[in-house]
Design a protein around this nucleic acid. Sequence first.
DNA 1: GCGGCGTCCCTTACGTCGTAAACGCGCGGG
DNA 2: CCCGCGCGTTTACGACGTAAGGGACGCCGC
Lengths: 219, 219
Amino acid sequence: MTLGPAGTREPLSRVRVVAAGVALADTLGVDAVSMRQVGRQLGVEAMSLYRYVSSKDVLLDAMVDAIVAEFPVADASLGWQDRLRTLVLGAYLVLLDHPWAAAAATSRPAVGPHRLRFSDDILGTLLDGGCSPQLAHDVSHAIDNHVFGFTLHELRLEAGSSGSAYAPASVPDGGGAVPTPHLSFVLQHAHHDRDAEYAFVLDVLIAGVENALATSAAG
Amino acid sequence: MTLGPAGTREPLSRVRVVAAGVALADTLGVDAVSMRQVGRQLGVEAMSLYRYVSSKDVLLDAMVDAIVAEFPVADASLGWQDRLRTLVLGAYLVLLDHPWAAAAATSRPAVGPHRLRFSDDILGTLLDGGCSPQLAHDVSHAIDNHVFGFTLHELRLEAGSSGSAYAPASVPDGGGAVPTPHLSFVLQHAHHDRDAEYAFVLDVLIAGVENALATSAAG
DNA sequence: GCGGCGTCCCTTACGTCGTAAACGCGCGGG
DNA sequence: CCCGCGCGTTTACGACGTAAGGGACGCCGC
């Protein structure tokens, strides 16, 4: 690698490595993120990265957490419902900007510090709303799953944007197509509005919490 | 590879290849599923598999669909709520038996024929319950996400069974731990009951549907 | 000034992966 | 008899993650 006219170059660092990985994933997809590619992006050999990330796995974990770091922070001036909505919809918007991130996050067990912070905000909001610790715990899992899982779902649908979302890829042994009467009926009579669906399910969860709070107060 | 005393061996076939992949994933994890490993399992070279599966990706898709094939079928003798519960809880139990399957299914865009059949059953159940096509569509996505996403979540928690479920794996740049007061509070006062949580969220979804049906009937 | 040491990056190498291409073998039909 | 073809093998290529060691540069105490 030739140096610039000044003869020096920006030194490597963990943040620069992670940022290069994110940039690569954003433009070419996660599959393009290999140690050698990331190195090339930085004008450096693959092995040099190992001084800053101990393995490719921790690089990916750090990349995911770098995205989660952009998630919004709880706004204490709102009621708990709107606070939740802000958090969850904000996370959704961030994930839409980095289509690989939802997939990477769900397919990887590690939970980074920023994700812990986000979970803590969700839990704090639920506790503020009057949830028992148990209820808050359960609902926060459901919300986590909604944020990452549902967003992944939506991204996939719009990725395979060539007409129908349901495109069977593998043919069964016998060969013939599977009859799916209800599926085709629904696809004819319903349209797919990404954002509305996401908000709808979130509202169902919120309504579920309100209901649980009401019945526990009454009992 | 030496032959048995009879001098012949079971001929290869697509189902045998897929079954070997499933067996390998069940015992050694998905990461152990390589073409060479699957071949070894069958007493055959890696390249031989390509006569039955055109690539590793379609092998994995077929493996996932083989698992989904075990999902239950809708029982028309039940009311729509219980029919849903049977379908969704049955799928959950199957996925628990093959811990890799939920991860593989969510991280992979293809939808196989058995999964289409399952979605169709869900949709049929919802339509039977009186849902509009649009509502059925939205809810079925939420249910799909619940089945695969939530199950994945639960499996992960019990995989990292070494005490706390929230073990941050990557340290931030600055180094220090993140303060998570609500999280630690909740972890102290709530316990994690896998099955109860799964059923709880499902019931929240069902209640949401009932509510939507009631208000649309009233309006 | 200078010798050692730490930090940073490079080179080389190994074993694995997915898979393209061509080969060999055995069997059933002309 | 032999041709073809279905099936499995062999060989090979270009990636991959990463272990091990080497060399250059700058800062430290002396």
